[in-house]
Amino acid sequence: MNRKIIYELNALYREPMQVTGYEFGEGEKSVCVVGSLRGNEIQQMFTCNKLIQRLKKLEQQNRIVEGKSILVLPCVNTYSMNIGKRFWPTDNTDINRMFPGYNEGETTQRIAAGIFEVIKDYGIGIQFASNYMSGRFLPHIRMMQTGFEDIETAKKFEFPYVIRRNTRPFDTTTLNYNWQIWETRAFSVYTTDTDEIDAKSAADAVKGIEQMLNKEGILHSSVNGGYHYNSRVLCDDNLLSVRCREAGIYENKVDIGEEVCKGQLLAEITDPYEGMVLEQLVAPADGTVFFQHKAPLIYASTTAIKLV
């Protein structure tokens, strides 16, 4: 393992922000894994550290195929993470809206450019991503429809689901989109949580990556446990949204991943002062709980649950 600083930014009063990369194996740039780009992506960084532990072991056992190299960046936005902020400390910009970056531009454009210069030539790019909707997800591989998306490789993670979604204008500045445009096969991996650690889904994600790398001829190891699904490929439109009319205190009545029947109670919204039930969210069809809101309060007109 080779630990190296792949980008450094100086500040006036803080220590320089150093983006640390961990390189395993030697040779062609086969796989790059990026953990947290935002300061609240704790689970994403945690999942990377589990992956680094595993790759250390595999490298010691000579399980990395000769001529292949793997780079892991557990955390890019260390400055924000250290102060509990999601976006860039001074101007609140999002590094994951700055790719491919511009090395003579504004601060987060420069960070994106500095990182992208190092990671753009890898054959496979994996990002542990987070969604702007705050909540819990069933683990899945998510990809944008750019014309370059590679569904067959996505299935090799053996996750329960591969979700394909239409590209929106603001997606064009994300890491995943730009990787694809630069001809890297890019995959966003979603585990269950973002700002809290979910060790089980992190461990499963690491095993999923190991499965994929075995099938791609980058590792030769044996994977115990983890997911072994024949992934279902879905479009975002295939997910059934359950929206609330009311606002108040929110409580889930089912777990993420639970199979539910049409008419089953999924969640309840209660009056914050008097406690009476304002709304019951029920399943509009049989399905599996794919996404659920998790904050204790909820606004009206919010998608609280998504079913597969």
């Binding site: 606002a247 108040g248 309060l297």
Partner: peptide, 10 residues
């Protein structure tokens, strides 16, 4: 107009 959780609407 959108209801907020605690006694208010946006």
């Amino acid at each position: 107009q959108v209801k907020l959780p605690i006694g208010e609407s946006l």
